[in-house]
Computed example of a mutant assay.
Amino acid sequence: MVEKKVTWLELFCDLLYVAAISKATHVLLRVNEGEVLFVNLLKFNLIFIPVWWAWVGQTMFVNRFGKDKFHQRFLIIFQMVFVLILISSLSVDFDRYYIPFLVGFIGVRVLTAFQYFLVIRKGKREQNKAAYYLATRFWIGIFISSCSIFCSSWFKYVVLYIGIIVDIFIPLFGRKHLVKHPVNTSHLLERFGLLTLILLGESIISILSVLHPQIGRWNAIGYSVLSFSLIISFWWQYFDNLEKKIDKAIKTTGQMILYGHLFIYISLSMIAASIQLLFNEEISYYFILNFIFGAALIYFLSTTLVFHKYRYEDQKLKIFHLSLFLSIILSFYIFDIFIPVSGIIILLQINVFFVIYAKVST
């Protein structure tokens, strides 16, 4: 497989998307009567998924067809203008900012689809099939989502997200075309790994901005240490697997990587929000217990599935390992259900689980 390096422009573009994800995560910090309302949980996902898909679309194009030429650089920079419009429109008040949100998202997707048309070349049959399929089929989702501008009230959101869902499923429906022009696995893992690393860094910044040590409140220091320890555990587990356990020569469509990381990124955002909610002590005990353990379980299952497919055969986890991890996290959860503990103890338990997960899985 030809070696492909991540460009500085790709990394610069990632910073914009991380800012968008950070804004989406703040929706989870809106507490009402001790809980994050279901409507805010829904809005978080409705904001997060289009941002993730906009990033994935361009990432997958660059992985298969990117050449770092002038016209591709220009289109990526032009696309970043629409990303900025998208970021500026992210709010729990969807109705007020709906038009700029739609313009930003559609602009990103149109430019992505257009780039596929530009790479269709004579004599490259398999490349042309993959590029032509994506270039033409992505317009279906774009058209459906664009039609939402003619709808009113809540129905416009239904039309918008039907288009986004169709867009997301296009690569799955076209697997027979894409498998003949596989992704560059090494580059793709590096791209997702770098975004993960930036998100972990952003998590540290957002958490420490809340955890201010004060006289007589040493628990803030405890929260800071445990939060940092937890993020280090994520880093250890994720990047040791990425560097040491993964066969990067495997040729696939990369769909397990891109769809699996949706749940990895959602769970990281949920855990970052959970730490801040635990520290502020404004949240219902049983709500935050379900929220943080649910997020931990999502991260565990999604990373396990993503890495399992690409692990060397002799490095794959066995049923015994999965049973061990599930028994540990369920034991902590059941204990906390019947014997309420402080927020810092919950955070310590999550730390213990992820340290064990990192050590055993790497």
Rank of each mutant, 00 (worst) to 15 (best):
V2M: 12
E3H: 13
E3S: 15
K5W: 13
K5G: 10
V6E: 02
V6N: 04
V6C: 02
V6T: 14
T7L: 06
L9I: 13
L9G: 08
L9C: 11
L9F: 13
E10G: 01
E10P: 01
L11E: 10
F12V: 02
C13F: 15
D14F: 02
L15W: 10
L15S: 08
L15E: 15
L15A: 14
L16T: 13
L16N: 13
V18S: 14
A20T: 05
S22A: 14
S22P: 04
S22Y: 10
K23Y: 13
K23H: 13
A24I: 03
H26E: 08
H26C: 03
H26G: 06
V27K: 05
L29S: 09
R30Q: 10
R30E: 14
V31S: 04
N32Q: 10
N32F: 14
N32W: 12
G34W: 11
G34L: 05
E35Q: 08
E35A: 05
V36M: 11
V36A: 12
L37V: 09
F38M: 15
N40K: 09
L41K: 01
L41N: 07
L41R: 03
K43Y: 13
K43W: 12
K43T: 09
K43A: 11
K43D: 09
N45W: 08
L46I: 09
I47N: 00
I47G: 04
I47T: 03
I47Y: 02
I47F: 03
F48E: 00
F48G: 06
A54S: 14
W55A: 06
G57L: 03
G57P: 01
Q58N: 13
T59L: 00
T59D: 07
T59M: 07
V62N: 07
V62Y: 09
N63P: 02
F65I: 03
G66W: 11
D68E: 15
D68Y: 15
D68Q: 12
D68C: 09
K69Y: 12
K69W: 14
R73S: 10
F74T: 15
F74Y: 14
L75G: 07
I76R: 00
I76A: 01
I76T: 06
I76Y: 05
I76W: 04
I76S: 00
I77Y: 12
M80N: 12
M80F: 08
M80L: 05
V81Q: 12
F82P: 01
F82D: 00
L84P: 00
I85C: 11
L86Y: 14
L86D: 04
S89Q: 06
S91I: 00
V92F: 08
D93K: 10
Y97I: 05
Y98W: 10
I99E: 10
I99M: 07
P100K: 08
L102P: 01
V103R: 02
V103W: 06
V103N: 05
G104E: 05
G104R: 03
G104F: 06
G104A: 06
I106E: 01
V108G: 07
V110D: 12
L111A: 08
L111I: 09
L111T: 10
T112Q: 11
T112K: 06
A113S: 05
A113F: 04
A113G: 01
F114S: 03
F114A: 08
